[in-house]
Simulated scan of single mutants.
Amino acid sequence: MSTSPPGGCRPAVPVVDAARIQDRLAVPRVATYVEACQGDLDRALLLYRWNAILAGALWETLGHTEVLLRNAIHDALTTRHGIRGIAGSWFDDVDGELDRRARDEIITAKRRARRSAGIGVPPGKIVAELPFGFWRYLLARRYSATLWPAIRHAFPHLPGRDRVQLEEPVIRLHQVRNRIAHHEPLIREDIPARVADVEAVLEAIDPALRAWVRDDGGRLGAIIDQRP
């Protein structure tokens, strides 16, 4: 049974004082938006809401990109491990090629994966538990002579096979992802440039992936254009 009022009208939304919302969100938190709106609090709250809508749309795009990136790197390192004929998985790092941070993150990922999968954790569960930062740092210069020669095969369309051309956009995407995760403002971020970073990473893996991820009916672009 419908609970809508007679005539299909929606109940009136109560008017909430802007200063009250600002107080609840925290004045310092809203200050960035107020400054961007030259002290206009009403407009600042519209900008705050737009920031949240943008963050949601960009998070979706970044989520697809992260999954595709980490799977590409994982597949390349799995192939390398198999060619070398070493038992176990590349996650085991029997040659000690990974730095301490990476090894610690793998230990944590394995522990979390075992909680849900039990004994005999499939590699995909470990991949899913590793943070974006883990994959970002596998592209760092410290691995240019060890892991990169194998990882680069996961990015056959990377111009010139230059590691830095992949690392730099991934660094920027990792940074903006963290901003979104902590509900920070994106209003000073060059969002079209970050979208270009997404497209560059996906294009390096497979141009078809770029087309698939960006097939959102123009939603993200429209949100960017609707900034208050």
Rank of each mutant, 00 (worst) to 15 (best):
C9M: 11
C9R: 09
A12V: 13
V13C: 04
V13I: 12
V15E: 13
A19Y: 06
Q22D: 14
Q22T: 11
Q22W: 08
R24A: 09
R24K: 07
Y33C: 00
E35Y: 01
C37M: 06
D40K: 04
D40C: 00
D42T: 14
R43T: 03
L47I: 04
I53R: 10
W59H: 12
W59D: 01
E60D: 14
T61K: 14
G63S: 10
G63W: 10
G63N: 07
H64T: 02
T65L: 02
V67A: 03
H74A: 12
H74F: 01
I83N: 09
G85A: 08
A87D: 05
S89T: 08
D92R: 10
R100C: 03
R100M: 01
A102L: 00
A102V: 00
A109M: 03
A109L: 02
R115N: 04
R115I: 15
S116M: 07
G118T: 09
G120K: 10
P123I: 03
K125S: 12
E129T: 07
L130Y: 01
L130V: 01
F132G: 00
W135R: 02
L139F: 07
P149I: 08
A150V: 08
I151R: 09
H153T: 14
P156V: 02
L158A: 11
R161P: 03
R161V: 10
E168F: 03
V170G: 07
L173T: 00
H174E: 06
Q175V: 06
V176C: 12
R179S: 13
H183R: 09
L186E: 06
I187R: 08
E189V: 14
E189G: 11
D190Y: 12
D190P: 08
P192A: 15
A193Q: 04
V195T: 02
A196F: 04
A196E: 14
D197A: 11
E199Y: 04
E199F: 01
E199H: 14
A200H: 13
V201T: 10
E203I: 01
E203S: 13
P207K: 10
P207G: 06
G217F: 01
L220M: 08
L220R: 03
